[in-house]
Design a protein around this nucleic acid. Structure first.
Lengths: 234, 234
DNA sequence: CGGAGACCTTGATACAGATCAAAGCCTCAT
DNA sequence: ATGAGGCTTTGATCTGTATCAAGGTCTCCG
């Protein structure tokens, strides 16, 4: 059952909790994937650098150890759509074909754990529980994409920003403060808006007393009224 | 390995080719899922009727035998986003959790084959190849959703309509004619536009000589210049 | 510590697509 | 066949968000 990708004695620790939209961040939490012994190593990417490109061979899958990653698609004239943000604990770059469908970049200095893809495939062919784990991770990505289609197709700018804040609140709030790793432009490209519209929506929510900016930075946000914020996201 | 959902002697025939974006429509093409013997029956739904509702228990998965199905999500005030159209051969209603994430409705009179969900789950737990089949179907849904996010977030109305026509051309053109089962409103709710904008875009393409309407109906479309159409979808 | 460059906010204006409106067309049931 | 009701087109107008523009603020490197 061992594959040619295996290096002796190494084990992959994987969070079942695969992706955007999932809560706990504890690393090392084991899914069934931990039963697959596979090549595993850590790597660091500096802020702004590409981890893999769209249509590149998908040789590895990745787990964020520390930092944040954005995955996007581009149109030929440069318009960009960010599909997801990946925070500590999240797995990304999981493809079923052989090529990546997004470009992935580090938003801030980021450490990732990576795993040779072919190992997983071979293990999954014979181990139904590993395959089910992959299915669960893919399904959680799918659920996120489905919800995001509704947002992109039908929500107003204020609703989109409210939804974004609630998502990030769920995924990265520590000690009541949300320290956003991404810029207004990244948020805009995630929400299908311009950075000016995002900025105006945040200012508006600030003016309504729904959120506060912490200290001297605009990326540290405190949610002051989650109930009213949730009411804004239909 | 038999499950409690099994009825003696019945077999599910499944198209590996699960979903929107896949080409061949031959029914009965076997995936590994055909190895799983499961409850199977056919059912007819009249035009406009609901097949299942969002958040309902997902007791079955479905395959379109004949007809067409739309799956959508609603906002509380009635705004609608159609996630996908399902044509002959497509499988839909496959969920990983226990509840449907979309409402499914028959667009025209439609025949579906259905399969008890719990069977599949039990089989997948022990059969890696069945699990991989489910993974492949889920991945093809995911790919479609990812492409659609780019369309909804960043494309212009003309680009969206061009992309829609190219998708439908790929999926349902017979004898050079595309017989669309869905209304302008359905197309609009799929593309994140209004029905008027869709109508204007189609008229515009007609005026450009890129498409023609067949006979006395607006739902029979002939693509006259696929190259120029493709150039309009960045 | 200081200054260059990136990031963010805010204001003015433009415009793509939404909304409102009306008329024609097709479908289908009687 | 025929007419009622739904679907589609087309036109006029409105509006939310994009675009253009400018100034302020933060960061971080030297």
């Amino acid at each position: 059952m061992q594959t040619n990708c295996l290096k002796q004695g190494e084990t992959m620790f994987v969070n079942v909790n695969a992706h955007p939209g999932s809560q706990p961040k504890a690393l090392g939490q084991l899914g069934e994937l931990s039963r697959a012994r596979v090549i595993l190593s850590e790597f660091k990417y500096n802020k702004g650098t590409e981890i893999f490109g769209e249509a590149e061979a998908a040789d590895y899958i990745y787990q964020v150890i520390d930092g944040a990653v954005r995955t996007h698609k581009l149109l030929s004239d440069g318009r960009r759509q960010i599909g997801a943000f990946h925070l500590a604990g999240d797995i990304f770059g999981l493809e079923n074909g052989t090529a990546h469908r997004f470009t992935a970049e580090a938003i801030v200095d980021t450490t990732v754990r990576l795993m040779k893809r072919c190992s997983l495939e071979h293990v999954a062919e014979t181990d139904a529980l590993v395959a089910l784990d992959l299915l669960n991770m893919t399904t959680s990505n799918l659920r996120h994409a489905e919800d995001h289609m509704l947002l992109l197709g039908r929500k107003t700018s204020l609703e989109r920003v409210a939804a974004f804040l609630l998502e990030m609140d769920r995924r990265l709030t520590a000690a009541g403060v949300m320290a956003l790793p991404m810029s207004r432009r990244d948020i805009a490209d995630y929400l299908g808006l311009t950075l000016e519209t995002v900025s105006r929506a945040l200012s508006h929510l600030h003016g309504m007393g729904i959120l506060g900016f912490l200290g001297q930075t605009q990326r540290q946000i405190v949610l002051l009224d989650r109930v009213r914020l949730a009411e804004l996201d239909l």
